[in-house]
Design a protein around this nucleic acid. Structure first.
Lengths: 187, 187
DNA sequence: CACACCTATTCAAAAAGTTGAATATCTCCC
DNA sequence: GGGAGATATTCAACTTTTTGAATAGGTGTG
C-alpha cells in the first residue's frame, strides 16, 4: 500500500486523471516510483472509497470523459502522517547490475549493449528533467527559487534524479571502456 | 522470476547456503537486488527442482545442518541467456523520495530526519564496500586488477554502488541545507 | 544465568504488482 | 483513406513480494 503515498504526493501538484498519473508514473518519466495504468486506476478507486481522494467527472466532447482526482483533507492528513513514519529501506532492483555482475560468465557483447542502452536512456531522461527544471525555475536562479518557492519538494527530487542519471552515464562509460579493453586483450 | 538471475549471479562467487545468500540480499548489504530469506529459500527449492542449482548437505556439529547450493551447467547456461535478453526498465521504489516530494505538505522535521538517516546509511555502506574493494584488489592497483582479474563483474557493480552512495550523501547534505534555510526563514 | 543475537530453515496468508486483453473516439501524417 | 498513436478507462488471471510466525541449538555479554 505504498503506491498511494506516491499518488498523493503527485496530487499535490493539482488535479489529475488516472491517465495523467499513468503518464507520470510511466517508466519513461517515473521519478522514484513506477506503476502501470491498471495499478493506478485500481488504487485510485480504493482511495476514493476510503475518502483520500475525490473524483470530479469532466465531460469532454471529442474524447472520452475523464475523472479528475484531487486530494481531500483526509488524504492530505494521511500524506502528512506518511512523511512522519519511519522509513523503510528502498527496494532496488536493477537488472542491468545483475547482468554486469554476471558478465564474466555471460555474453559480454550483450552486456556491453545493455550498458550503452542505459547510457542513452539516462541522456534522454536528463534532457526531460532539464526541461522540467527550466519550467520550475521560471526564470529565477536556483537560489531565488529555493528561497522563495512555495514547493521545493519536487525540485529536490528532480536534483536527485538528475544526479542519478549523470552518475549512470559516468559509470557506464567507464564500464564500457573496461569491457572494451578486455575484449581487445582476449583477441 | 527475476530473483533467480540475481541468485545465479551471486552463485558465480561459489557455493552458498540460503542463509549466506540471505545475508547478501539483505537490505543492509544488498547491492542491486533485495530479497528476504523466505523468498530465497523458496526460489532455491524451485531452482533445484528445475536443475539450475544443485544442493549439497553439509552436516554441522554445533549448529543446524545446511544445504550449500552451487550452479549447475544448466544454471550457467540460463544465466548466460539472461545476460543476452533485452533489458527491462529497473524498478525503482524509493520511499524517501516520495517523502521529499511531499515535504511541503508534510512534516519537514521528520523528512529532515529521514534524509539524515539515509546519509548515515550511505556512509555505512560505503565503508563496507571499501573493505570489499580492498579485498578484491588484493594489493593490486585498480588498473592491474581490471587488466588481469578473472572476474571483473563484481568490481564494476561495486563501483556503481559506491558512486550511488556517494551521490546520496552529496545530495542529502544539499537537501538538508535547503530545508534548514527554509526552516530558519519561516521562524 | 538471563537476554540478546547468530546460525539455518520452513510454512502460510495477505497484499501488491505484472501481464494481457478489450473498448471507443480523436487527431495527425503520409 | 488507412494506420499509428494519443486520450481515457476497465476487467481479470496470474505471479511475486511482503509479513508474520515458528523451530531450535549456539555464542557472547553483563
Amino acid at each position: 500500500m505504498a503506491l498511494r503515498n506516491a499518488v498523493m504526493a503527485a496530487l499535490l501538484e493539482g488535479e489529475a486523471s488516472g491517465y495523467d498519473l499513468a503518464k507520470e508514473f510511466d517508466a519513461s518519466v517515473a521519478n522514484f516510483w513506477m506503476a502501470t495504468p491498471q495499478q493506478l486506476y485500481r488504487e485510485l478507486d480504493r482511495m476514493e472509497a476510503e475518502g483520500l481522494v475525490r473524483a470530479r467527472v469532466v465531460e469532454q466532447e471529442r474524447r472520452p470523459n475523464k475523472r479528475l482526482f484531487s486530494l481531500t483533507e483526509a488524504g492530505r492528513r494521511q500524506l502528512r502522517e506518511f512523511t512522519a513514519e519511519p522509513l523503510r529501506p528502498g527496494a532496488i532492483r536493477d537488472e542491468l547490475m545483475v547482468k554486469v555482475r554476471a558478465v564474466d560468465a555471460g555474453d559480454a557483447g550483450a552486456v556491453r549493449a545493455a550498458i550503452a542502452e542505459r547510457i542513452a536512456w539516462a541522456e534522454a531522461k536528463i534532457a526531460r528533467w532539464e526541461r522540467l527544471r527550466t519550467r520550475l525555475l521560471a526564470g529565477r536562479t536556483e537560489d531565488e527559487f529555493l528561497a522563495g518557492a512555495e514547493r521545493i519538494g519536487p525540485y529536490l527530487t528532480l536534483l536527485r534524479g538528475l544526479a542519478f542519471e549523470e552518475e549512470n552515464i559516468r559509470w557506464g562509460r567507464r564500464a564500457l571502456a573496461v569491457l572494451d579493453r578486455r575484449a581487445a586483450a582476449v583477441q
